[in-house]
Design a protein around this nucleic acid. Structure first.
Length: 471
RNA sequence: GCUCCCAUCGUCUAGCUCGGUCAGGACAUCGGGUUUUCAUCCCGGUAACAGGGGUUCAAAUCCCCUUGGGAGUACCA
């Protein structure tokens, strides 16, 4: 049997990393089993779905290098098919027309909630006589089609969760086709998955309870039931659902920040899935395909760990030849700073210094900030107080004197100056370099000190020192 | 409310099927080495079985309860 999986996003916004992971798992699973991966656009929510979002979604997928094997299917193009199957269920008395209006429905729901009962549809329209139905239809009363639920427990084997047992009474007679002729999610997935011969449904856990509904639909329609695999959700670092207030949540945002396709792909793959080889988290797509399966997917939710993504993405950045990185980095710098303060040679050096160890490309902006902001905007370094004491300040002051006297400042000059000052004051190693670095650049981390100082130039150095001494 | 799912270092997790491990790895963090500083790199350390009951010679592992987190209960997906 050929394995067929699908990714079925609804184009209601930009692609969330959770969705991206679902796509990755499905794609990996299909590729691992030499099967097919299919894309289906679930745009039955007319209010929120847009073509623009759909295009963005496809763009994100392409960026992640996730390819699909057949022409993508759009659910809004298939309303006839859903209606046909729904009508078939009506004919078989497994579903019925419902003429209840929104107002009636919501007042009933409120009443049930007030009585602390589950707000399920009361089934009133299922008891309508043939004649009443006929009359309503003739009068053109809008109707939806509801499924007549046979209340019974549903047990199924989930590839990730194991045996799942859903008790009867979880839902009432639910809607299959809305009064606007659009199918409801739980119905269209079943019809489509069955018609598209999907063998493995890999999706997020929020659909776990829905699965019971879907299984009874498969049975009512006479379709074979596919395998299900429900992945736990991706959470923010505080344990709540990953949302906008936690920072970047969409693939697009990560892409724009300069995360690499391979880096994000790799990270998302190992978020909730463990590669078989201990200690090896960095895996190529080929290896990912080779190893991925549902048996090592975790049951419990995973927190999105930005520091691990940063590490992993940094590993991928290291592999890229600098020549490829250069134009991207340069344009990032150009977008944020006035580059003409420096000549070509200096820009090249700054670029090289800033690009030493990036976790994501736009980090270059922060890395080279020192060279472009004015000294008075430098903020107080965290460890300043620790160093703002003798004998370190004496060293800084001597350095200040020498620099202000100097005519030409270059790397050689700073090299000998530091050496001499070290001898003079008996400072070496960290005790020599740190005070200078801290007071003259305002940072405790940074590239090679002599180069930084040379690039900064006399004026800036003196001003930064004055500034730091005043903190 | 009801139903379902989940629970091992700060984080992602291995181990659980088939009880016996100094509870392993990666990221982060801390310390050491290299770099006269920073980053890189190398070496090393700290750090976890949610709680309570059972079963057993022996429980992270099997059973029950509690607690905590999440999802569903829609003419959203």
């Amino acid at each position: 049997m050929e394995v067929r999986t699908r990714f079925a996003p609804s184009p209601t916004g930009s692609m969330h990393v959770g969705n991206a992971r679902t796509a990755i798992f499905n794609w990996l699973f299909a590729r691992h089993h030499n099967g097919k991966f299919i894309l289906r656009i679930e745009d039955t929510d007319l209010e929120r779905s847009t073509r623009e979002n759909e295009e963005k979604l496809i763009e994100d997928l392409k960026w992640l290098k996730i390819d699909w094997d057949e022409e993508p299917v759009r659910q809004s193009d298939r309303t006839k098919i859903y209606e046909e199957y729904a009508l078939r269920l009506v004919k078989e008395k497994k579903a019925f027309f419902c003429f209840c209006t929104d107002e009636v429905l919501s007042s009933k729901r409120e009443k049930m909630m007030a009585e602390k009962k589950a707000p399920h549809y009361d089934g009133s329209c299922s008891r309508l006589s043939d004649q009443e139905i006929e009359e309503n239809l003739k009068k053109g009363v809008p109707y939806s089609i509801r499924f007549k639920v046979d209340q019974k427990d549903i047990i199924f084997q989930d590839l990730i969760k194991g045996e799942v047992n859903i008790k009867a009474g979880m839902f009432g007679d639910f809607v299959l086709i809305r009064s606007n002729k659009m199918p409801v999610y739980n119905f269209s997935v079943v019809v489509d998955d069955a018609l598209m011969k999907i063998t493995h449904v890999i999706r997020a856990e929020e659909h776990l309870s829905n699965t019971a509904r879907q299984i009874i639909l498969y049975q009512a329609l006479g379709f074979p039931v596919p395998f299900f695999a429900h992945t736990a959700l991706i959470l923010a670092d505080d344990g709540s659902k990953l949302s906008k207030r936690h920072g970047a949540t969409s693939v697009e945002e990560y892409r724009k920040k300069g995360y690499l396709s391979d880096g994000l792909f790799n990270y998302l793959s190992i978020l909730g899935w463990t590669p078989p080889e201990e200690g090896k988290d960095k895996l190529s797509r080929k290896e990912l395909i080779q190893f991925f399966d549902t048996d090592r997917v975790a049951k419990s939710p995973a927190k999105f760990d930005l520091s691990k993504l940063n590490w992993l993405n940094g590993e991928y950045i290291k592999e890229i030849p600098f020549e490829e990185l250069r134009p991207v980095l340069l344009s990032l710098m150009g977008q944020n700073y006035d580059l003409f303060f420096y000549n070509q040679d200096e820009i090249e050096k700054i670029l090289l210094l800033g690009a030493r160890s990036l976790s994501y490309l736009s980090q270059i902006i922060k890395e080279v900030e020192l060279f472009f902001i004015s000294p008075e905007n430098i903020s107080k370094p965290l460890s300043l107080d620790e160093w703002k004491q003798e004998p370190h300040t004496a060293l800084v002051k001597r350095f200040y004197e020498e620099v202000s006297k100097a005519e030409t400042l270059n790397e050689e000059f700073f090299g000998t100056l530091l050496k001499n000052l070290g001898k003079e004051l008996g400072a070496k190693g960290k005790n020599l370099f740190m005070p200078i670095r801290l007071f003259a650049t305002g940072q405790e981390h940074g590239p090679d000190l002599n180069t930084v100082l040379t690039l900064l130039g006399k004026n800036k150095i003196l001003k930064i020192i004055e500034q730091c001494l005043s903190f």
